[in-house]
Simulated scan of single mutants.
Amino acid sequence: MAHPDRPAPADTRDVRLLSVGTALPGAPVDNLALARRFGQSPQWAEWVDLFVGTRTRHLALDLDQGTHTHTLADLATSAGLRALAAAGLAAGDLDALVLGTATPDLLMPGTVNIVADRLGLDQVPTFQLQSGCTGAFQAIALGRQLLRAGEHRTVLVIGGDVCSRAFDLAADVSALPPEQLVNAMLFGDGAGAVVLSADPVPGAPLVREVFTRLVGLGQAPGQTLAWFGPNDRPDGTPAVSEDYKAIEARVPALSAEIYHELLHRLDWKPDELGYLLPPQLSGRMTTRISEVLDNPSAAEISVVTTTGNNGNGLPFLQLEQLLPRLAHGERALAIAVESSKWIKAGFALEGA
């Protein structure tokens, strides 16, 4: 049984975050473009901006043609190559590859193995974790544990999603119930990657803590993403459904729990934080969460208003903004809440 109030045991094997790389498909798509595609008025676009707080997003599809332009493997490979280049490494320097996603391109082969093939990797362990907004945190946690176990020196961790695969571009959005309509506003596509290392690389931030924890025992899912075979799709069952009211009610409180747990586990004080990377469901939700966390000493790193919620790509987009700013001794916390079956996750970095 896990004890969330008990600090994690000390480990002398440090793990460092060497670099980050990201990939976004195409140009930003604003709310007016969405309104035009769905046959809605400019007032609808203004309502999206007010209700969701997200102005633009990047989509792996051509809205006019209704065709997909990028796969998750495309974006993940690009992000991975950029992270490797930023670390001054080649794919041959890697000991393992980990991918976190809720939207793999196929059930088999795993998208992680398609990415490995494109990177030229072979004879290395590969892991694919399927999860929603905390999948990137789970992937980082696994990468860190692989390094701390002592058998590996360098791991590439990737997270990303192509949420637009679930879009029904022919849908009459004016007739959709809120739990389906909200998905057309919230989500975008993208991927990111980090290189983690057990080597004492000067200047590379230390990954001080990572945790993920299921907290949804006996509770209804806040989000579902269905998979259908050719013969088992029930009539009228939506591919994606979101209980946005439940998410609004629960995510700020869960975020506060993660925030305080990380501080407790690390014995850090709130005023010692330089940066805070809050959950990125939407611009509006990020504002609500930040108000609950109420830490004016920590600069907020938030990108969702311009990138949309691209799931497991988002933490890496936040890290891309954080790393150039994180000075020696400065501390940062990142928080994520997954509503699919309610998972809490967080990680902590310290500048070196």
Rank of each mutant, 00 (worst) to 15 (best):
Leu156Pro: 00
Leu156Cys: 02
Gly160Thr: 06
Gly160Phe: 03
Gly160Pro: 01
Gly160Leu: 04
Asp161Val: 05
Asp161Gln: 10
Ser164Phe: 04
Arg165Asn: 07
Phe167Met: 06
Asp168Leu: 08
Asp168Ser: 13
Ala170Ile: 00
Ala170Pro: 00
Ser174Trp: 05
Ala175Tyr: 03
Ala175Phe: 05
Ala175Asn: 08
Leu176Gln: 08
Pro177Asn: 09
Pro177Ile: 11
Glu179Ile: 00
Glu179Leu: 00
Gln180Ser: 09
Leu181Val: 07
Val182Leu: 01
Val182Phe: 00
Val182Cys: 06
Val182Trp: 01
Asn183Glu: 09
Ala184Glu: 04
Met185Asn: 05
Met185Ala: 15
Met185Glu: 04
Phe187His: 06
Gly188Ile: 00
Asp189His: 11
Asp189Arg: 11
Asp189Met: 12
Asp189Pro: 10
Ala191Val: 03
Ala193Ile: 07
Val195Met: 05
Val195Tyr: 02
Val195Cys: 10
Asp199Gln: 14
Asp199Lys: 12
Pro200Thr: 07
Pro200Trp: 02
Pro200Glu: 03
Val201Ile: 07
Val201Phe: 00
Pro202His: 12
Gly203Pro: 06
Gly203Cys: 05
Ala204Tyr: 02
Leu206Thr: 07
Val207Tyr: 04
Arg208His: 03
Glu209Asp: 15
Glu209Ala: 15
Val210Met: 07
Val210Phe: 04
Thr212Arg: 03
Thr212Gly: 10
Leu214Gln: 11
Leu214Thr: 12
Leu217Asp: 14
Leu217Pro: 01
Gly218Lys: 08
Ala220Gln: 15
Ala220Glu: 15
Ala220Asn: 14
Ala220Gly: 09
Gly222Ser: 11
Gln223Thr: 15
Thr224Lys: 07
Thr224Ala: 07
Thr224Gly: 02
Leu225Glu: 03
Leu225Gln: 03
Ala226Lys: 15
Trp227Val: 15
Trp227Tyr: 12
Pro230Trp: 14
Asp235Arg: 14
Gly236Cys: 07
Gly236Ala: 10
Gly236Ser: 08
Thr237Arg: 14
Thr237Ile: 12
Pro238Gly: 05
Val240Tyr: 05
Val240Glu: 06
Ser241Pro: 04
Asp243Lys: 00
Asp243Asn: 13
Asp243Val: 01
Asp243Ile: 01
Tyr244Val: 09
Tyr244Phe: 13
Lys245Tyr: 10
Lys245Thr: 13
Ile247Thr: 01
Glu248Met: 10
Arg250Asp: 05
Pro252Val: 07
Ala253Asp: 13
Leu254Asn: 11
Ala256Met: 09
Ala256Ser: 07
Ala256Leu: 13
Glu257Cys: 02
Glu257Gly: 03
Ile258His: 06
Tyr259Asp: 08
His260Cys: 04
Glu261Lys: 10
Glu261Val: 08
Leu262Lys: 03
Leu263Tyr: 01
His264Tyr: 08
Leu266Glu: 12
Leu266Gly: 11
Trp268Ala: 06
Trp268Phe: 12
Pro270Asp: 11
Asp271Tyr: 08
Leu273Gly: 03
Gly274Phe: 02
Tyr275Trp: 15
Leu276Pro: 11
Leu276Lys: 06
Leu277Thr: 09
Ser282Val: 09
Ser282Met: 13
Gly283Met: 04
Gly283Cys: 05
Thr286Ile: 13
Thr287His: 09
Thr287Ala: 08
Ser290Glu: 14
Val292Ala: 15
Leu293Thr: 08
